[in-house]
Design a protein around this nucleic acid. Structure first.
Lengths: 209, 209
DNA sequence: TCAAATTTTACCCAAATGGGCGATTGACGC
DNA sequence: GCGTCAATCGCCCATTTGGGTAAAATTTGA
């Protein structure tokens, strides 16, 4: 026999909060163990050991749902937090994910679907609409703008990133330090920088390494 | 009236390929416009203008499905490519997403669900199981290990990342260049590095900036 | 086959960097 | 009150770096 999923709600709108509470308590397999009207109360009173899944409103007065998520996850990394939002906002989405949210769903989601999403989160999945999933996976797709560097220059760049100097790079590549110096000059010209630190920054930013 | 979704299949197993083809052609709203047994044929013959969604096997002989995806997306960034795989493999998943895959589903997915997933992809969503979604969103959650740097040091570090020297950083912060030098020495000690390039690398790696 | 780009090497020199040592002030905690 | 740390500043010195200029061998593409 499955344990009931213990759910906590953090939501400032009393009506919505109570609605969700009723929904949960009247659904077999679910139990609403706590309701909070703001992030401060949740951070104060929520016992992470007694909760499986948190439904977290993003737009809370005072401390935001995102900050609350970040703090709760610091206390208990295993806690599953599902963000609730009314509007699809890219910044809020990614800030939520970085804060440690497990799922991201719209408030207009149907009650049945929300119960399903809570179960998904509890069982190790991440509930989100396929439209939101698309926005998430698009962040991975970065068509690499053809690197302006030659193969050898890219190789030298990897040693620059490691903080090596002319001499040690030269030894690693079995060439003269003067050669490395020439390569680095060319790298600087092509990346439009003039110091190692800048080159390393640009290398990271443009995914040249 | 909706247009039919034009689907192409890239899959080396003839049986599976034909099975999917039959499934599509016998489902209203779907049309299998092409089948390829390997990536090379697909890259040669596939007309991106005539295809809405590609079902791409990951494990192809010769050129992999991931490489094929990368090339197809270069030709046509709007093309929706759904990866098919038998085993859940983290590296393959993220390589696929970086290559530009729209979705990622297991071959054992039911025919009805696959049709649904194709429609999802075509309508701007990203089909994937909630377990896979969890693996994806977990990459965003990096609990920032408390930075070892003081506030001032972090500030100096941001200038280092920009490639600035002692003098200009000093001017920006209205202190002596010697002070900046002292800060940088402390940064080096705390990050266990000894050059600007290394410090910048570490700053990026550990998300200190 | 000829031009362009890449890879290789060299030298000079001013400026920047990194390491070592020391010092003062103020804030915070115990 | 005392120790710790952060932030501030100073000096010395060897090493490294970056910019300028030049040139040869090799590869690649047109």
């Amino acid at each position: 026999m499955k344990e009931e999923i213990r759910v906590a709600i953090v939501e400032d709108d009393a009506e919505i909060r109570q609605l969700f509470g009723l929904l949960l308590d009247n659904s077999p397999g679910y139990q609403c163990v706590a309701q909070y009207a703001d992030a401060e109360s949740a951070l104060d009173q929520l016992e992470v050991a007694e909760v499986d899944v948190v439904l977290m409103d993003i737009d809370l007065p005072g401390v935001s749902g995102i900050q609350c998520t970040e703090k709760l996850k610091q206390e208990s990394p295993e806690l599953n937090i599902i963000m609730l939002t009314v509007h699809e906002d890219d910044a809020a989405l990614f800030d939520s994910l970085c804060a440690g949210a497990t799922g991201y769903i719209l408030k207009e989601t149907s009650p049945v679907q929300i119960l399903e999403d809570i179960r998904t989160a509890h069982q190790g999945g991440s509930p989100m609409s396929s439209a939101i999933a698309r926005r998430v996976i698009q962040t991975f797709h970065q068509p690499q703008k053809a690197s302006p560097l030659s193969e050898r220059e890219t190789e030298v760049l990897t040693y620059l990133v490691e903080g090596q100097n002319y001499r040690t790079i030269a030894e690693a590549l079995f060439v003269s330090p003067n050669t490395i110096k020439a390569h680095i000059k060319n790298i600087y010209r092509k990346l439009e920088v003039s110091t190692r630190a800048e080159a390393v920054s640009k290398a990271h930013k443009d995914r040249l390494i």
